[in-house]
């Protein structure tokens, strides 16, 4: 009796890793029991199609699609990034830039902050994270600060985040976290971490969906179980 489908349980992201193991075992189960009802005579498999055709693509010309996207080449420490790999800029998006308008001198941190009241940190705990974890008060404010010292330009904030979130940085680099913008073909441009996450409160906000669902077909499967019925015939 083949499994009709399987759905891994998706807990809140903090428990994610534990359940993905569960997911694999279920997936294996599906794979091992699932080869019963194949279409005659020989269905082609995507895997084989890829193996047989992999190679040089005649990708559509995409230069005009990305022309307007302001970007800088990605540079990841310890790896050579390909020449056609970019990240959307951030420095030009900051409301308060240039910071030097006000921050010509070092910020006296012994005082309570007298500005940026709108910024309230909700990122890890206050024991882990203060403004100076990422902003160096002694240097000018045009860049961010590595944990161990040294500057990171705003446009490359992914390197700052990646110091603590290296798995996300790896997947962002590979393409399964974050997103590519403008085109699937041609130069690869990806969204910066701070293009999606507010660094000061990085969790995604709750909000109303922008559209209502369609009134029809609101179940994913026949409730009465597809598989059971077909096996009786």
């Amino acid at each position: 009796m083949p499994h009709e489908f399987f759905v891994p349980s998706i807990p809140h992201h903090r428990r994610r890793r534990a359940t993905s193991l569960w997911a694999i075992s279920l997936l294996l189960l599906t794979v091992s029991t699932g080869c019963v009802d194949l279409d005659p005579p020989h269905p082609s498999r995507v895997k084989d199609t890829i193996a047989a055709n992999e190679g040089h693509a005649e990708e559509p010309e995409a230069a005009h699609l990305i022309a307007d996207v302001t970007r800088v080449p990605v540079s990841l420490p310890g790896s050579v990034s390909p020449e056609d790999y970019f990240v959307e800029t951030r420095a030009d998006q900051l409301m308060h830039a240039p910071c030097a308008q006000c921050h010509s001198d070092a910020i006296p941190l012994e005082n309570e902050p007298k500005a940026h009241w709108d910024i309230e940190l909700q990122h890890a705990g206050s024991d882990t994270m203060t403004c100076t974890t990422c902003h160096d008060p002694d240097k000018h404010m045009e860049s961010l600060a590595y944990l161990k010292g040294g500057e990171v330009p705003f446009d490359h904030s992914y390197r700052l985040c990646g110091q603590c979130h290296f798995e996300q940085l790896r997947d962002w680099d590979g393409g399964s976290h974050g997103k590519r913008v403008a085109a699937w073909a041609g130069d690869r441009i990806v969204r910066n971490c701070t293009g999606c996450h507010d660094p000061h409160r990085p969790a995604f906000p709750k909000r109303w969906p922008v559209h209502n669902p369609s009134p029809t077909e609101t179940r994913l499967m026949d409730g009465d179980g597809h598989d059971k019925e077909s096996s009786h015939e």
Partner: peptide
């Protein structure tokens, strides 16, 4: 949940 039979495609509330 271990099945999609209960999946709800008709939600409209904060997400």
């Amino acid at each position: 949940q271990d099945g999609l039979a209960s999946a709800n495609g008709d939600f409209y509330h904060e997400v």
